[in-house]
Write a protein that binds this DNA or RNA. Structure first.
Lengths: 160, 160
DNA sequence: TAGGCATATATGCAAATGCATGTACTTTGC
DNA sequence: GCAAAGTACATGCATTTGCATATATGCCTA
């Protein structure tokens, strides 16, 4: 007995989310188990990686949008990375409440070394399961989820 | 200037992983911000949810495969859930090193209540960005990543 | 421009986490 | 059938995290 289109859609969405969570957990564990992180945690590497992608020094708040950590936890993680010489923190001239963060030379070097190995490992893991089309589909779909469009009134109405 | 097929594939894989991570982080934050979790953390809910899916009481180790937490952390989280009356822990008869975990009535009830609301919210969030085909593709692809096939010698050779 | 509300980041503190290791049990090799 | 190695889970301890809140600055209105 087929469900209503509405119920189907709901199942589809929940199954997709569970699949994404499972894939995430499986791969994160696999990557974490590799011996490439030196004295960094994966979360710390994530911060260095995010900073490495930006030409402009990043605000703590902007960094926070990309990292799954509470704001205070991120603030202190950055503090530790500053102490260890991987990140530079300087006041923002435009908004003196804020901070601007960038990689030091040491931080950039560390990110590059770890990143090179990690990237190989990521490509290997994903390519082992998916062909080129699937990889492209996964990218396209996940980027849609990562950068949601602004909710319109219609969306809100539909959501009810 | 197009890269070699090998380089392309590597880029594809890394881009897909970054997209998956971004989608994961964005949605996790969105869900975490919702006011439906009562006195549970999302991680604790995840444990209750995993247990709710299994007819047989689960071994701690099996649970650990599904949850992104160290074994000791999971052991103690389960301990807290037992103390709070959501999970029952009994020794495994076959292997007396082990433990079998199941939901109590209270745990099942709590999972169902929270799960009902969370499922709505998940479906809404994913459906807002993806159509039915995309949801189905995402499921299929992520399940492949979540349950990898056993590595053969050929895979190892290719990976080099 | 002073007062009040909003925003960006930091800090105090209890709780949760990871790493190293301990304990109990099981399996293996002889 | 027993010693040695392996596996499943728990515990000690230092570190990290989250929550609530403080601090500092920006913005807006009278």
């Amino acid at each position: 007995m087929p469900g209503s289109p509405r119920t189907d859609r709901r199942r589809l969405g929940n199954d997709a989310w569970e699949a994404l969570l499972s894939a995430h957990a499986r791969l994160m564990k696999q990557f974490a188990a590799e011996d490439i992180w030196q004295d960094l945690s994966m979360r710390e590497y994530d911060v260095l990686y995010t900073l490495s992608k930006c030409r402009e020094p990043l605000r703590l708040g902007e960094l926070h949008q990309h990292v799954l950590l509470s704001q205070p936890a991120l603030s202190r993680m950055v503090e530790r990375l500053v102490e260890r010489g991987f990140v530079a923190r300087c006041p923002d001239v435009r908004d003196r409440r804020g901070v601007r963060l960038s990689l030091t030379a040491a931080g950039r070097d560390r990110q590059r070394r770890i990143g090179a190995r990690h990237a190989r490992s990521v490509a290997r893991a994903l390519s082992a399961e998916l062909d080129g089309d699937e990889l492209a589909q996964l990218s396209a779909i996940c980027w849609k989820l990562a950068r949601p469009h602004i909710a319109s009134k219609d969306d809100v109405k539909e959501a009810t």
